[in-house]
Design a protein around this nucleic acid. Structure first.
Lengths: 326, 326
DNA sequence: CTGTTAGCGCCTTCAT
DNA sequence: ATGAAGGCGCTAACAG
């Protein structure tokens, strides 16, 4: 920067002002500085900038996985929102481990980010305490059923589970099954499940079978679990899946074996992923606004850090989409 | 750090040594420093660390999109590799625009990353020149057909297109169709396409129809394009799709309309995405090692920056998987 | 509108 | 095995 200043015949401070276009700088000086900068190929050093007091304009993002479209869509929303500003996301994947998540956040904090985007409301005590003590803006996405560290942008999984149960009960189904994956990891799915079961039971209907896979969720697992369930003695008349991938796998099994949907078995998923539209049948599901939650969270954390913002809890409503499978 | 030093009754420099466990520090001092640090909740400041000369341990990653599983899997590989080290990825999405990509890289460079991961070999001249002049390690992923800036980790799309054409010609197909999306964006698909066409023509067979959509690729688009192609007068006997999403959409169309695959129409995709396994039929495709390319690239760029590494071009072979659709 | 001064928190180098 | 001095490149705060 000093070099640029010399070349442009101004003080280094003026160069700094031009670079951030802050304060008053005359037109002519701006031009001189800019051309000097391009001439020597000056590249701003944000490490120094951040250190000197300006906000670092980094935002930490920690998601449980990228193998699941849900989270890559959240991330997509985040990056889209940041592309407008000059904020950069620093990224980490926790693999659904609170220990890893805690470590990642600690590492990210070393970059003095202006904000942090986490997912879910369940974290290690250490993480909670650290973040409560720190001054970075924190937003937890994809869930609002619980006590956020600061702000949460998401929706109620309990409500989503209740709503789907209501829908299915309304359709007259009596014998329910559930298929999920890794219940010790996907805590949000468990919230939906519990609420779903409660609603089913209160209506006097019953859960015939609940099947959990230890594998990460995928269409293939959905297919296999569905096959297993339909082989059992006491068949359900509807299967509620933890997500659309599983449900689509179930549909694939039915298609491949000429099982009539929803006559012989009804199917319902969760998330409303885009690929459902092109399946031979529209699967009943709950549409979650993943991309929008990502953009909203990104905009929230990257706001002016000086202005104190009240923590908020934003409920992005989930949208039950009745398809042909129920 | 000075505070920690006071509490532990050592110099700040010693604290620095302990934090990085570099140099010789006695056992007892280490313990004192560590407990002092935890006591006051010390968080290392990497901005200062980076400024003072240590490498920043950030790696910039710029991908064209996150809407496509292919790239979220690459990113997944990258983050997995970094989870071992203490390197953090800073992330950007170019939306397939060279202008945006250039700007993103310029922004990322301001963080003094130790490396940069880009995708594809086609970039703006400005980007090329900037990166050639800079000292950051650059690796371009997912393509090796061309002249990399420095190193490239990927595979040959020309070879993949040739190989699929060979496979289909070998199966006796004579009338070929192609379905793709946004050819001005997905340059790598175009490479496959050209090579595919050449091979088909050289064998004396013909391309009956080529259909491009302006929309981003999806199963739905694949379904619609397939429907359009099968309505045409001169029907092909096989369709080569730019990727698996399109091909799966094509299969869905056939399933929904009782069109016999591969008897009435054969289908082939590209990438070998995981979800193909659970479709009612195995689609013929070329399996690309996206995750592995991500991890390899990440490990390469995050190596010790002091040791000069020769640029490399690594060919991750593509694996043609013959399914039931050809 | 432009310049001066004083760090930000850490690491490199050189001493001891 | 530990400490002291100096500076990385930038920006806040204050002058003018």
């Amino acid at each position: 920067m000093t070099d640029v200043a010399k070349l442009a015949n101004v003080s280094q401070m003026t160069v700094s002002r031009v670079m951030r276009n802050s304060g008053y700088v005359s037109e002519s000086v701006i031009n001189r500085v800019v051309s000097a900068a391009t001439e020597i190929g000056y590249v701003n050093n944000r490490l120094a900038g951040g250190l000197a007091g300006a906000d670092s304009s980094l935002v930490g993002v920690v998601l449980p996985t990228l193998q699941n479209r849900v989270f890559s869509e959240v991330l997509s929303g985040v990056t889209t929102a940041f592309s407008e500003s000059n904020v950069q996301p620093v990224f980490g994947v926790s693999e659904y481990s609170q220990r890893v998540e805690t470590q990642l956040v600690l590492d990210l904090l070393a970059w003095r980010p202006k904000g942090l985007i986490l997912s879910g409301l369940e974290h290690s005590k250490e993480l909670r305490d650290t973040l409560l003590a720190s001054s970075v803006r924190v937003v937890e996405v994809m869930d609002i059923d619980g006590r956020p560290i600061e702000s949460s942008f998401g929706f109620s999984h309990r409500k989503a589970g209740w709503e789907m149960a209501q829908h299915l009960l309304g359709k007259g189904y009596k014998r329910f099954a559930y298929v999920g994956c890794q219940p010790n990891r996907d805590l949000r799915a468990v919230k939906r499940y519990k609420s779903f079961c409660n609603t089913v039971h209160r209506a006097g209907a019953q859960m015939v079978v609940t099947k959990y896979s230890d594998e990460p969720s995928s269409m293939l697992i959905g297919r296999q679990c569905t096959e297993a369930i339909l082989r059992e003695k006491h068949k359900p008349d509807v299967i509620y899946y933890a997500n659309d991938d599983l449900a689509a796998g179930g549909l694939m099994h039915c298609l491949a074996h000429q099982i009539q949907v929803p006559k012989q078995i009804a199917l319902a998923g969760f998330n409303g992923l885009g690929f459902l539209e092109s399946l031979p049948m529209q699967i009943t599901t709950s549409r979650t606004p993943r991309f929008e939650i990502g953009t909203a969270a990104a905009e929230f954390v990257s706001g002016d850090p000086k202005e104190l913002v009240e923590p908020v809890k934003v409920d992005f409503a989930v949208d039950l989409v009745a398809g042909d499978t129920t």
